[in-house]
Design a protein around this nucleic acid. Sequence first.
DNA 1: AGCCACATGATTTTTACTTCA
DNA 2: GGTGAAGTAAAAATCATGTGG
Length: 224
Amino acid sequence: MESGEDQFSALDEGDPFGFDLGLKERNERKRRFSEEQIKSLEMMFETQTKLEPRKKLQLARELGLQPRQVAIWFQNKRARWKSKQLEREYSSMRLEYDKLLSSFENLKKEKQVLVKQLQKLTESLEKQREESSNEGESDNGDSKGKEAAVKQSRGSDAGFVCPVVQEQQVEDTKMERLNYVNQDEIELVGAPASTSLTSTEQECCFDCTSFPDQQWWEFWPMTE
DNA sequence: AGCCACATGATTTTTACTTCA
DNA sequence: GGTGAAGTAAAAATCATGTGG
């Protein structure tokens, strides 16, 4: 740490109010700087937040102030500028966080809607499955042929992923990422960070493996 | 006129770093 | 080379006053 204005140099340069004065008397002499003086100090602060001793002396001379006063002004200015800067940074981060939180909430709602849709579809698929198995009971010979055909097609499509489930998984991954990023912050503001919004097992009751005899697309409504 | 909140000039304390014996 | 005391600069904390509502 070298150079710059310092609090001790004032001892050499003379106390603006005289160190031999009592505290009260010194404070009584405290006067605000003129607009002109402030303007010059501000301008200098914009170019450099720390003053070299020579600049300090020069500025003090120009403004009719003691070098110590200029040094103190710069010290105060730095401290107060820093705290304002922190406030500004906090505000912008808060804004960013609020935006993120709101988009997170929207995604959560969107997901809930999708999960409900999925549930409805699953139910209707289940219903259709029951109906078709009832029909099969009354026609055994034909069902054997169908079973064989289903087995064959299952073999050839091994590894195929139902697009609905795939979509849900993608959504879950998105949510997981968002949750991962936001978790600390959400906990900070008391939002339910631990509300598991991700687990496919928990929230998605649609499962391709729950159709032992049929493929999912056999039940998929054909739409144009 | 008195009170309060805030701004601001000044002082004191703390912290981090350097120099030197 | 490691170490502790002294010196220095800047930050942080605080005080006291000025000012406007």
